[in-house]
Design a protein around this nucleic acid. Structure first.
Length: 344
DNA sequence: CCGTAATCTCACCCTTGTAG
DNA sequence: CTACAAGGGTGAGATTACGG
């Protein structure tokens, strides 16, 4: 039933056997079963040794000490001459030390190992993590929630590309530690270069289109708070000045292009929207005409339209609806406001 | 001050156990 | 056998510590 997991474990096992053969000159091969196999257990033996020790191996990704304890527990009570063995993708030095303290033998795919059985003592730590795993971790950081927020901030304020990571994190409302990987991937994808010692956003048109295409799945659902039904006249009359809220989508498009008569209302808010709800007499309604989302930027506001979201977000929201009228307005918006900003 | 790496936290999802 | 709750693993992101 767990064919996918079995396969993943097989890969780890094969790599780990190869790695330990390289770093410790220890050859392990599959052995006959010495007991009813538990979940995910594999039977191995080192037949080159006179003592012919056998191992019952468990393949598991190890991140913390607790996992080591669990494996130790799962593999207790083995008969004489048979030993437990933990097979992990990668064991840090601290995890390796923990295994040694608990007398739990392990091997990993980097070639680290601790094995202490009659006729055989191996302890190897500090082998570097295989590059492929590192790449796995670094790949696909651009279109995560954090990546989307950072890209949006950069597209709206292109000078931000040369700011410190702390400043980018503040404007994009993401943690400092998450900025670096996103920037690195944007550079890899050819969207960021150094020009005269200044970090510069390039291929902005392509980046903008990619962001808009991914916004509906990659970020919007995370921002959604609730949907309400509200009186249209009251909504139109709402004064957002001083409130922590701005119009998006149809209302913003109407005010920017003069086209479109809004039917759906989209508000991006900071903090809680209580005062808005009472002012416009909104009531919770799954199919209501008003949706409230979390604002996700700290950009300076546009003095000519202080109560609207940035045009890029208006465009993305209109595109996301797929509504015919909205698409036409979106095209207009693109021509008038976006195209000049994202030519390169 | 700045970027990076290690560590911590939390939400989601998959497994597994259990009751009907 | 099915449905559903409980528990644990996992990955994304936030925080923190550190060295330049």
């Amino acid at each position: 039933m767990n064919s996918r997991i079995e396969l993943r474990g097989q890969g780890t096992l094969t790599e780990a056997l190869g790695a330990v053969a390289r770093t410790a000159a220890l050859k392990l091969r599959h052995a006959v079963k010495t007991r009813t196999p538990g979940h995910g257990e594999v039977f191995l033996e080192a037949d080159a040794l006179a003592t012919k020790p056998q191992f019952v191996a468990v393949i598991k990704t190890v991140r913390n000490f607790a996992t080591i304890g669990m494996v130790k527990e799962q593999l207790n009570g083995l008969p004489p001459g048979v030993y437990p063995l933990l097979v992990a993708p990668y064991m840090t030095r601290a995890l390796a030390e923990r295994c040694r303290d608990l007398h739990l033998p392990f091997i990993d795919t980097a070639g680290n190992a601790f094995i202490q059985v009659p006729g055989l003592t191996i302890y190897i730590t500090g082998e570097p993590q295989p590059a492929r795993r590192k790449n796995d971790l670094e790949r696909r950081r651009a279109y995560t929630e954090v990546g989307m927020k950072v890209i949006f901030a950069l597209l709206c304020d292109q000078k931000l590309a040369d700011a410190t990571y702390r400043e980018i994190g503040r404007v994009a409302q993401v943690a400092l530690g998450t900025v670096g990987p996103v920037i690195k991937e944007l550079a890899n994808r050819g969207h960021l270069v150094q020009r005269g010692g200044i970090a510069t956003l390039i291929n902005t048109r392509e980046l903008m289109e990619a962001w808009v295409a991914r916004y509906p799945e990659a970020l919007r659902p995370k921002l959604f708070q609730d949907r309400y039904q509200a009186d249209v006249d009251r909504l139109q009359a709402l004064d957002l000045h001083g409130r922590q809220a701005v119009w998006g989508a149809e209302v913003a498009a109407q005010r920017l292009t003069g086209y479109l008569k809004p039917e759906q209302f989209t508000l991006y808010v900071r903090g809680d929207a209580k005062s808005l709800l009472t002012k416009a007499r909104m009531r919770l309604d799954q199919n209501g005409n008003t949706e409230i989302l979390q604002a996700f930027w700290n950009l300076p506001e546009d003095p000519t339209h202080p109560d609207l979201v940035p045009p890029l977000l208006v465009y993305a929201d209109l595109m996301a609806t797929g509504d015919g009228r909205n698409l036409e307005t979106a095209r207009l918006l693109h021509e008038q406001l976006l195209e000049p900003l994202y030519r390169s």
